[in-house]
Design a protein around this nucleic acid. Sequence first.
RNA 1: GCGUCGAUGGUAGAGUGGUCAAAUACGACACGCUGUAAACGUGUUGCCUUCGGGCUUCGGGGGUUCGAAUCCCUCUCGACGCA
Length: 280
Amino acid sequence: MKKVIVILGQTATGKSALAIKLAKKINGEIISADSRQVYKGLDIGTGKVTKKEMKGIPHHLIDVANPKRKFTVAEYKELAENKIEEIISKGKTPIICGGTGFYIDAITKGVIFPEVPPNQKLRKILNKKSTFQLFKILEKLDKRRAKNIDPQNKVRLIRAIEIAKVLGRVPKITAVSPLYKFIKIGLYLPSDKLKNKVEKRVKKMFQDGLLKEIKKLKQTRLSKNRLSELGFEYNDPTYEKVVSGTLQYAKRQMQWFKRDKKIQWFDASKKRAIVITESR
RNA sequence: GCGUCGAUGGUAGAGUGGUCAAAUACGACACGCUGUAAACGUGUUGCCUUCGGGCUUCGGGGGUUCGAAUCCCUCUCGACGCA
């Protein structure tokens, strides 16, 4: 089975740099796993690596979507899987690198999503209903799903109904055994060091023109709603807000990752991490 | 110096005699996650508890009252106004 390296972890732990270094060493190409870096125009705020930093290593799934449109996990999964194949067929090693746990799981856990594309019209209608009403609707359509869904989570309820309307019910979650051997490497930092790194990074974001980038995005007819959906940095950015928001995000990331027992964790503040991963 | 208003839990901010350990929001902590995932949702958030309850809180002190975060007096601090 072909090997695919996965580098994940909290934001600002140096995943990108490690991925590039590794790619150089083992003849790899990088597939980003970041739900916001897929969008064009969100560069500084999402911490995209610059062309220069890439050092000639091909990076995939960055800038593949228009921010006006919502990109989804399922799309990501398909694109990423194609890329993996493509890279392997060139005789190179794919390196998935990013901090969006859901995206990473979508690929590495072989989860199959029901093939029901989002139906914006239906969503709009359903969105006007209360969670209680939505729950009743779902219960009628699919008792099984209603039983284990969070009855207060509107987003989930709507999606479940959306699926059930097309397929008759929400299919039981299925996972096929993965086609590749995924080697998951997690980077973490002790909280004081993480805070430090985040502060540094945010400072740099402002220096690099974060505010200008936001202004530009606003001019491209992106709605306020859409902007805040894309992340707090693009909403009302003060230095303090961005820092605390980023730290909150880092916490949520860890919350997700820590459930995956197959991740091998390394303290990013210790150089040894790189040595070990390279020797694998 | 005089006058007015204000001082509430980590923060903002409701409450203005009992139903107040004190709304709500944010933060913090914990948790979940079937095509928005930096999204979305849930729980806890004074202390102790044998989970029945018990104890100490609303700037400090004193008082009125069966009963005070709420009323009165006084002190401290802050905002504004008049000098």
